[in-house]
Simulated assay, not measured.
Amino acid sequence: MPVSRRRPELHQALETKPSPARGPGKPTIGFFGLGSMGLPMASHLLKSGFNVKGFDISENALKSFADSGGTAYPDATEAASETDVLMLMVVNIDQAHQALFERGALANSTRTSIVVLMSTCPPGEVEQLAEAVTARGHRFLDAPVSGGVAGARDASLSIMVAGDRQTYEMSRDLLDVLGSKIYYLGERPGQASVAKAVNQLLCGVHLAAAAEALSLAERAGLDTSTVLEIVSGSAAASWMLNDRGQRMLLEDPEVTSAVDIFVKDLGIVLAAGSSARAALPLASVAHQFFLAASGQGSGSADDSQVIRAYRGMTAGQKEAKK
């Protein structure tokens, strides 16, 4: 269950240096990663009155953030200057390391700043990153999210959090802006990332299963829109089917999450299973289909297009039988 929302205010708990950029009673946030999810998340923080300094390597992302009223920086060190919190919504753990250490963001933030890693990353590597951050005197929260682009836009994300309890309580004001459900998993960073891996296991398997089912209907010559309506309203329904099913029937749907994201995420799931000595055969098979779709050239397509891997397996077989 989501935990209680009673907590100390962040601006009261942090020992920070005064800054002319900081509004009254509000911490300054460095938000790293202004992509399809990061941009609306940073924008929600802005609208809630937080001082937000955005960083991304994409000029278009920086422009979009500036257009929304934020202060955009093409340099991570500048974006981190005088910040109380560094929120990372980057692609992977390597980008987190680069931003914090190679680009100097951590060293340029306030001496007691909090690093909040919100990306989906391997649990073991999250633990190592947390150790490197805390060894330098800063605080760290492992806080991956679920809900996709829609959840980011609606501020209805589910946020899984692990780390020092006091740091978590200090950060609730920020997390409540971004998510409708906040779950505290424990004191050890990496625990929330394990929970996210469990979530992604189910998402990936459900999505691959939905693609397989609709490809069967398509191959058998059924009207796939009707079949989708049937299964979406029956015991076969799942959140992933209802969200992605209609896009599977489109030739080139809008990309809300790419095939290659699930290639990465299911790879993390399998690594977590290996670490826990847990056999994950369904996750492994689903991973192979996302890899196949990516290998066919659909890596940047919407993840619903994993269905192309199934189509590729049977392409031309009907014609060969005639």
Rank of each mutant, 00 (worst) to 15 (best):
E187P: 12
L185E: 09
H206L: 08
E125D: 15
G124C: 08
L117G: 12
E127D: 10
L174V: 00
S238D: 10
H138N: 09
A135N: 10
A217F: 06
V126P: 02
G147Y: 05
S238V: 06
V198K: 02
G148S: 14
P189I: 01
L228F: 13
N199S: 11
E212K: 03
T167D: 02
S158E: 04
V115W: 01
N242Y: 06
Y183C: 08
V149F: 08
M240G: 02
V194E: 08
A150E: 14
D164V: 06
Q128K: 13
A208T: 15
Q191R: 10
S156G: 10
I182H: 01
D173P: 00
G221Y: 13
P144Y: 01
T167K: 00
S234G: 15
V126T: 15
D154N: 15
A155S: 11
M160P: 05
G245P: 07
S171V: 10
L222Y: 14
H138P: 05
R165E: 11
A210N: 09
V116C: 04
A220L: 14
G233C: 08
A235V: 13
Q166C: 05
S109Y: 08
H138D: 03
A130L: 03
S232E: 07
Q166R: 12
A107S: 13
D176E: 14
G151E: 04
L202T: 07
T110R: 12
Y184F: 11
V149S: 14
Y168N: 00
L222A: 15
D142C: 05
Y168W: 03
D154S: 15
K181N: 10
V116F: 04
G221C: 11
G245I: 02
N242G: 10
L141N: 02
E212T: 11
Y168E: 03
D154Q: 15
S158R: 08
G147H: 04
L106N: 05
N108Y: 07
G186T: 08
L141K: 02
S238C: 14
A235R: 08
C203F: 07
A150G: 07
S171D: 11
G148W: 09
R136Q: 15
R139A: 12
P122W: 06
L175H: 00
R139W: 09
W239T: 07
A107P: 04
G148E: 10
L201Y: 09
K196Q: 07
L241R: 09
A107D: 12
S119Y: 13
T112Q: 13
